[in-house]
Design a protein around this nucleic acid. Structure first.
Lengths: 215, 215
DNA sequence: ACACTGTTGACAACGCTGTTGACAACGGAC
DNA sequence: GTCCGTTGTCAACAGCGTTGTCAACAGTGT
């Protein structure tokens, strides 16, 4: 309709993409919807990004950029690892496809380097040698990404819907035939109880216990 | 061309879908390719499955069904957990979207119940109470799914390509500016070294250490 | 032998997706 | 003023999942 007064920028496109992801989830984040959001033809974005994966990489980088800010250098190494992983988790939950997008592009983004650096630094501070620091890094990253992947779908629901889904799962496990599933019946009421963030924190603490114990 | 002698069955479609996933990865697993694989029009599958997610749920159930077979009841609880998780990981690697598909459908599949049951049983055997068994279960599942999610893309490559990608990552980390990324530089050569399955085993062992230590 | 019925596959079509190439308008450099 | 690189528009393509319609088939009751 009207001519655009200010030309499009990479940042503006990334902003719109994140806005789109926030309000309508991953399904609605299409190039055409993105163009509509920006008041621009969809294909205009291809002047700034080679293709959609390229765009998503930029989105991922943006979301990841805040993960390692606000770190307190004097904090315990475990506390620092915990915070970094929790913020990484939050970023991943915000954009479930991020984990996939990250792995798609071997030329990794700047935000990712910062995360790796801060985690490795903590493990070295904890006294691990290079090999064990690398192993600890892999473990922690895999747990964080995994937890986020699992929780991402549930996270799309509101609080009520989420509680209802968890209740449904518990109910399902609680009504399995007891002779075939005795352990499930015994534990059913404890499954998926409480906030998912808390369960992640517990898992991470357990993992850090194991890492601290024998590297 | 020729008239089909035997009619399509759900099992045959699931077979073909798995075959397609095995040989060409998730991208090529489309309804049209599936029809081509079966020598049948793509839309014929809609006579047997409501839609694609419905099909993928069946695929997931099939892949998960083998996870808890071949368990030795007399084995150590840790060894059993390790085996179950390793086989679950293998199933997830075969079909990366499986993790998401699993969570999408609250009426969970039979194979998933068996996995949960066997893991919970081991944690109860280890002496954990219901609450801590549930927490341990969540931790272990999240790590397993996470590891599989991360490794899934790399797994699609052949051995040479995979090694090259890992080498590339190491190279990237090894050439970061040393004043800004000292820890990354120090650890770079140890990152992503050796088979991914081994790294997963280490992570799981660490987690089980932490679980055994204080539940 | 016949018609009726439910099932299954083929085919065409719809709306959506990411992406490309040709074209036109713009802004800055000479 | 003229050139040229940049950027947005437009039409189009191939592919996707999905639906509705139609024909061929098996089984059943008469």
């Amino acid at each position: 309709m009207t001519t655009r007064r200010v030309p499009l920028t990479r940042d503006a496109i990334v902003d719109a993409a994140i806005h789109l992801l926030d309000q309508s989830g991953s399904d609605r984040m299409t190039m055409r919807n993105l163009g509509r959001e920006l008041g621009v033809d969809a294909t205009a974005c291809y002047r700034h990004f080679r293709d959609k994966p390229d765009l998503m990489r930029a989105v991922g980088d943006r979301l990841l950029s805040g993960v390692t800010s606000d770190l307190q250098p004097e904090a315990d190494w475990r506390a620092t690892v915990l915070i970094v992983c929790q913020q990484l988790r939050a970023a991943l939950l915000r954009q479930p496809r991020l984990a996939v997008a990250m792995r798609d592009a071997p030329p990794l983004a700047a935000g990712e380097f910062a995360i790796t650096e801060s985690l490795l630094a903590q493990f070295l501070r904890a006294g691990l040698d290079a090999r064990h620091a690398a192993l600890a890094y892999h473990s922690v990253i895999e747990l964080t990404v995994g937890s986020a992947t699992i929780d991402a779908s549930v996270d799309a629901l509101d609080d009520v819907g989420r509680q209802r889904m968890y209740d449904g799962w518990r109910q399902t496990y609680a009504t399995l035939p007891i002779d075939e599933f005795p352990a499930s019946r015994a534990v059913a009421l404890e499954l998926y109880r409480g906030p998912a963030d808390d369960r992640f924190a517990v898992a991470l603490e357990q993992l850090l216990d194991g890492i601290a114990a024998r590297g």
